[in-house]
């Protein structure tokens, strides 16, 4: 806000106004290109089956109906999966933020003894993996298979996100922290009271990445979850989409009975399910947007 007022006080030249107009115009065109397909899917989910099948639905529902939504919402698996996804996303993101901040902070200090070694340790395991066999056995041995733990805990340190956060931490002027340390604050307190408040945009970014990552993750469930009550929403969606294909996810042709049943699962139902699985997580971003304001960091330092 303060920034906007300053800009207005400064006054815009004619050239700047042209720039502003052209820039916004181009962005709106790009934005529309990205919005329209989404609109089409939303329209399909509210349109009659025939209209969808014949490809008549564009950006407004044809033969408006809400039966598909009622159909999806009646499915008990949808609700239990929604519950799993919400719990996993909230607990996972919270835990991940704690561990990631704790890890990224020390590694952001150039004077950390053995820093290169530690960063290498982390980067290396981002690139190399031992494969599925030992991982599955490990998860089974520690009792993670068929529990929500497997969906939450192993994802609590994303190396990629950690490196991003480390990079943001590095840009904070060290002088501020040193003054805090002179006041006798421990490293944990410095992190909480000085570094984190100054990194809100970064924290919001990483938090968003984790939340979306947890929400969208169906691979972990695909491998480690067999019990229907622990299936996350995206796995449910995945199964719904695979169901309509002629081969299963391993490439085996499906039986006649399976295909026959899949014929009942129409595109409008799939669209409705996709909408219902996307919308909750898409609502997160607008709430985080207030942290993406220019000058926030410096303002908080001064304040």
């Amino acid at each position: 806000m303060a920034n906007k007022r300053k800009g207005a006080a400064f006054g815009l030249t004619a050239g700047e106004r042209v720039f502003e107009f052209v820039n916004t115009f181009i962005l709106i065109v790009i934005g529309l290109m990205m919005l329209l397909p989404f609109l089409q899917m939303a329209s399909k989910s509210f349109s009659g089956e025939t209209a969808v099948l014949t490809g008549n639905v564009w950006f407004w529902p044809v033969d408006f109906q809400t039966g598909t939504y009622k159909y999806v919402l009646r499915e008990s698996q949808f609700w239990s999966s929604l519950k799993v996804s919400v719990i996993v996303t909230i607990l996972g993101t919270a835990g991940a933020m704690i561990i990631t901040c704790l890890t990224a902070y020390p590694l952001s200090k150039t004077w950390l003894y053995g820093r290169k070694f530690f960063v290498f340790l982390f980067v290396f395991c981002m690139l190399f993996s031992g494969g599925m066999v030992p991982s599955y056995i490990l998860m089974k041995a520690i009792g993670f298979v068929n529990t929500m733990k497997v969906l939450i805990i192993p994802g609590m340190l994303g190396i990629y996100n950690m490196i991003l956060l480390k990079n943001f931490f590095e840009e904070i002027p060290e002088a501020l922290e040193e003054s805090a340390q002179l006041d006798g604050a421990g490293s944990l307190r410095t992190l909480i009271s000085i570094v984190l408040p100054m990194s809100l945009p970064a924290i919001a970014t990483i938090g968003l990445f984790y939340a979306v990552g947890y929400w969208d993750n169906y691979m972990t469930g695909l491998i480690y979850i067999q019990k229907p009550e622990y299936k996350p929403l995206q796995l449910y969606l995945y199964e719904l989409v695979v169901e309509t294909q002629h081969v299963d996810n391993a490439g085996n042709p499906k039986t006649m009975e399976a295909l026959e049943d899949a014929a009942l699962n129409t595109e409008s139902i799939r669209s409705a399910t996709i909408m219902l699985t996307c919308v909750p997580i898409m609502c997160v971003y607008p709430f985080l947007q207030k942290y993406f304001v220019k000058g926030l960091r410096v303002g908080s330092v001064k304040g």
């Binding site: 491998i223 480690y224 229907p228």
Partner: peptide
Amino acid sequence: SNWNDEKALVL
């Protein structure tokens, strides 16, 4: 319960 992935099933 339901299995999804052939490799996970074998494991």
